[in-house]
Design a protein around this nucleic acid. Structure first.
Length: 251
DNA sequence: AGAATAACCTGCGTGC
DNA sequence: TGCACGCAGGTTATTC
């Protein structure tokens, strides 16, 4: 793999050694942990985060890089995986196989459990939140317990589970955590099948927009009728982020 | 220790 | 048309 870094200033500076570290090496396996894409090489792992506005698209070497095309991963003759990120909230982090960078290692170790994995159950989440006064929506968004539930999906999951976003974690029953976990799995699975939610410019590796935004039941629907009961959907601010919910269906 | 707030960026829509 | 402002898919660092 050949690497071209045109802009090092991402969320953290891209390692100046990245080009040398990957030159001539092959990707053994592609994985993921939380929202980090993991490209595993024999001698270490490249962890890529797309931030809020990043995308990885397959392109041809001949195509000229455009605005905000910060990194090229040249895969083979004629093919390049190109990273574009207007806001530069994304990251390219090198995790060495022999001497793991403690910063990167901690970063991945401190992520919540996989939302579609076997550890997450209603009972598990109930036990983890007995002493937490934080609002359930902010707990989901923080990602310390469950990874991968972003701002769109936190609102959607809570609506489907019938849980009010402001409800303190410690005041949700074991049974209702069961509903929440079921909703998390359902919402994320559906969104994946539908290619994600394109609000503005989100695209997959082939440049295709997602269409889960058409399945949003509360996100972005302030003032519009609840699809279940007809009451107007409300929007509130929680920690600098917007939350949408139905005051009648969610308690 | 848990929780709230600030910070990192660019682009776009809105209102004056 | 221009400009100031607020907001946007995320997550860590800092402060309280």
């Amino acid at each position: 793999m050949a690497v071209h870094v045109r802009e090092h200033r991402l969320r953290w500076p891209v390692s100046p050694q990245l080009k040398e570290l990957l030159a001539g090496h092959r990707v053994h396996q592609v994985g993921r942990r939380a929202k980090y894409v993991l490209l595993e090489f024999g001698h270490g792992t490249l962890a890529i985060h797309l931030g809020m506005s990043g995308s990885l698209r397959l392109s041809t070497c001949q195509s000229a890089p455009g605005k905000h095309d910060h990194v090229d991963l040249v895969l083979e003759e004629g093919t390049v995986l190109r990273y574009n990120d207007p806001r530069r909230f994304g990251a390219f982090l090198w995790l060495s196989g022999n001497h793991p960078d403690p910063f990167v290692k901690n970063l991945l170790d401190h992520q919540g459990v996989e939302p579609l994995g076997p550890i997450l159950t209603g009972d598990w989440l109930w036990e983890r939140t007995r002493a937490r006064q934080m609002a359930v929506k902010q707990m989901l968004l923080a990602g310390k317990e469950v990874a991968g539930v972003g701002n769109i999906y936190a609102s959607e999951c809570l609506f489907r589970a019938g849980i009010h976003p402001l409800r303190p974690c410690a005041r949700i029953s074991r049974q209702r955590y069961g509903s929440l976990v079921h909703s998390i799995r359902e919402v994320l699975s559906e969104a994946i099948v539908q290619g994600g939610s394109t609000l503005r410019d989100f695209v997959d590796s082939a440049g295709r927009a997602g269409y889960f935004q058409n399945a949003h039941r509360v996100y972005g629907r302030e003032g519009q009728p609840c699809l279940r009961c007809g009451a107007p959907i409300r929007m509130i601010r929680q920690g600098q982020r917007s939350t949408w919910y139905c005051a009648r269906c969610q308690r």
